[in-house]
Design a protein around this nucleic acid. Structure first.
Length: 537
RNA sequence: GCGCCUGUAGCUCAGUUGGAGAGAGCAUCGGAUUUCUAAUCCGACGGUCGGGGGUUCGAAUCCCUCCAGGCGCGCCA
């Protein structure tokens, strides 16, 4: 038996199906923004009208005939332009609301326990994390939670490029600093990292009198643990940190597989992969003419490792500067025999920073650099997460440091938290008055919920499951954030008009039930977003 | 030059698989509290959806073109 998912959209589809109405493939149920038109709308009339070459209004009349009277709806109407509009009956909403506090209300099974590897941030170990990486972090973390919530088996991973040119440059920059401290003049390496953090590490090395062959590993260890510490402060945890140096053992294997498929050739002393056969604009180098493996070869080795570990879905979140890199990776995955429908790359667009209207450059090798650590200290991890998650990842994002430092009124984070705190406050007040609320709710009669504020809040609460489905489908946690704002708005609106704790015991029970449903949803979404709800403000 | 992303209210952004008078927050202005937190609520102001053309019964959404910004086009990572 298919588990019931209790989505309002599903209810409508069921209604149409029961009435023997043909439902075309691209049928959609959407929320209606304008309350006066109804709650949910179906585009079925447009679709049928195109197919049957008939006016939507005419088809609508026939459809309404077939549906006849269904007491779960207050009304079903044909909109002016041809939408089929459904307004649920208050009784139906009451019946549905009753389910929200049940234990298994949050049961979803979209993922069916499929194994997902989600890799994100994966910053080079060459310096502090920036707010740019914080965006990918907040997004990746929320996406992982969201996918877990709908029953995917998600494994999060952070890839550390501890080999290669950038790390060499970092080491050279360190050596420059050590010499500097010793009073030896030397030239700063071209393209090196001028950040002051290297001076501290250089000092430590001198104090500990470490031998030169230990410098590099000490340096990497310092920076990586520093990055981990900041991630920890930000409230983002990974199931695994994986080192490039640990996967280079698969280089040979990759070359073997590609050779077997006749997908490599030598040219001008370098070894090329025929990625252009798979839609890439040109073939790509695997081994350079001076016989060094490229980053790409190691990346293939890393993904070979992911496949070998049995992941069915592989998701990478990359910065926008990597978009040109996607075709060759897709080509590689195909060559390794992985179904590329299950290989997803999500680009998190850049974050540009302003300080009082002036652009701030964000480059480790450049001058000014705003670290995640600095922003966390000023703003706090939860408001920052909320702010970053408010935008869809494909959107370029700018914010003013001074503005986010203020981060009080401007941040809708507090609007949502306040609604949660108010509900907790209601509970405390009720207990103070001597009511055992949990006990009282065992026998609640929702007939007492009658006002339009109550109805509006109920409907918004019940949209939750449809919102989750939509957010999963689009990999878009920001949809949850916007929903959360709507839910908080509906709650505040209700709260202004109606009291919850009052003399009329039956009415109080019904309203407590309502706000507890609301709280349960807010809490769950905040949990998905990686944000801790505040019981007091 | 080619490719990708972006351009929506003064600011930051939703809406972009075509659909209802184009939305929210902030800012500005006006109003609301003997009662569970006023970090709230109500109202007003504010738009050539970058410009132009096209497809359509219907376009912010699709197509073409132009303009502006960002990013990429390494045998770097």
């Amino acid at each position: 038996m298919r588990p019931k998912r209790d989505m309002l959209s599903e209810k409508i589809v069921e209604t149409l199906r029961n009435a023997q109405i043909e439902i075309p493939e691209s049928h959609e149920i959407e929320f209606i923004k304008e309350e006066k038109f109804g709650d949910y709308a179906s585009n079925v009339l447009f679709l049928l009208s195109r197919k049957l070459k008939k006016n939507p209004q005419e088809i609508g009349k026939e459809v309404l005939e077939k549906i006849k009277d269904d007491s779960d709806y207050e009304k079903i109407e044909i909109g002016g332009n041809g939408f089929l509009n459904f307004t649920f009956s208050f009784d139906f909403l009451r019946k549905e609301l009753k389910k929200v506090l049940e234990k298994d209300y949050f049961f979803f099974d979209i993922g069916k326990k499929r194994k997902v590897n989600l890799e994100y941030i994966s910053a080079n170990p060459t310096g502090p994390l920036s707010v740019v990486q914080a965006r990918a972090g907040a997004y990746g973390n929320a996406l992982a939670n969201l996918l877990r919530f709908v029953n995917y088996d998600v494994f999060t991973e952070y890839y550390i490029n501890d080999c290669g040119t950038q790390v060499d440059l970092l080491e050279k920059s360190l050596i420059y600093r050590i010499k500097e401290l010793k009073g030896i003049k030397s030239e700063f390496p071209k393209g090196g990292y001028p950040g002051e953090y290297l001076i501290g590490i250089a000092q430590e090395i001198l104090e500990k009198n470490l031998p030169e062959d230990k410098w590099r590993s000490f340096l990497l260890e310092r920076i990586i643990s520093w990055q981990k510490e900041v991630l920890n402060k930000f409230g983002i945890n990974f199931d695994n940190f994986i080192y490039e140096s640990s996967i280079i053992q698969y280089q040979k294997k990759i070359l073997e597989i590609l050779e077997k498929g006749n997908l490599v050739y030598e040219k001008e002393g370098a070894l090329f992969f025929k990625s252009s056969l798979f839609g890439d604009r040109e073939d790509r180098v695997l081994i350079t003419k001076d016989k060094r493996p490229t980053y790409f070869l190691n990346d293939l080795a890393y993904h070979y490792d992911k496949i070998k570990r049995g992941f069915e879905i592989i998701i990478n979140i990359w910065g926008p500067d990597h978009h040109g890199y996607i075709p060759r990776m897709v080509a590689g995955m195909k060559s390794l025999g992985f179904d590329t429908n299950n290989f997803l790359v999500i680009l998190a667009q850049q974050v540009s920073l302003e300080r009082e209207g002036e652009k701030v450059k964000m480059s480790k090798r450049g001058g000014e650099f705003i670290t995640l650590e600095e922003v966390l200290e000023e703003v706090g991890s939860d408001p920052l997460k909320f702010f970053l998650l408010l935008r869809k990842p494909s959107q370029h994002l700018t914010f003013d440091i001074e503005l986010i430092k203020k981060a009080t009124k401007e941040n809708p984070y507090f609007y949502v938290q306040y609604s949660y705190a108010r509900i907790c406050s209601i509970e405390r007040y009720g207990k103070e008055k001597g009511y055992d609320l949990d006990k009282l709710l065992e026998d609640v009669n929702l007939e007492y919920l009658k006002t339009k504020e109550e109805r509006s809040l109920m409907l918004t609460i019940l949209k939750f499951k449809d919102i989750i489905i939509q957010a999963v489908k689009e990999f878009a946690p920001h949809i949850l954030v916007y929903y959360l704002l709507e839910l908080a708005e509906k709650f505040h609106y209700f709260y202004e008009k109606e009291r919850v704790i009052l003399e009329d015991l039956e009415l109080m029970k019904a309203r407590v039930f309502l706000v507890f449903c609301c709280r349960k949803i807010i809490k769950k979404i905040l949990e998905i977003l990686g944000i801790t709800p505040l019981e007091k403000m």
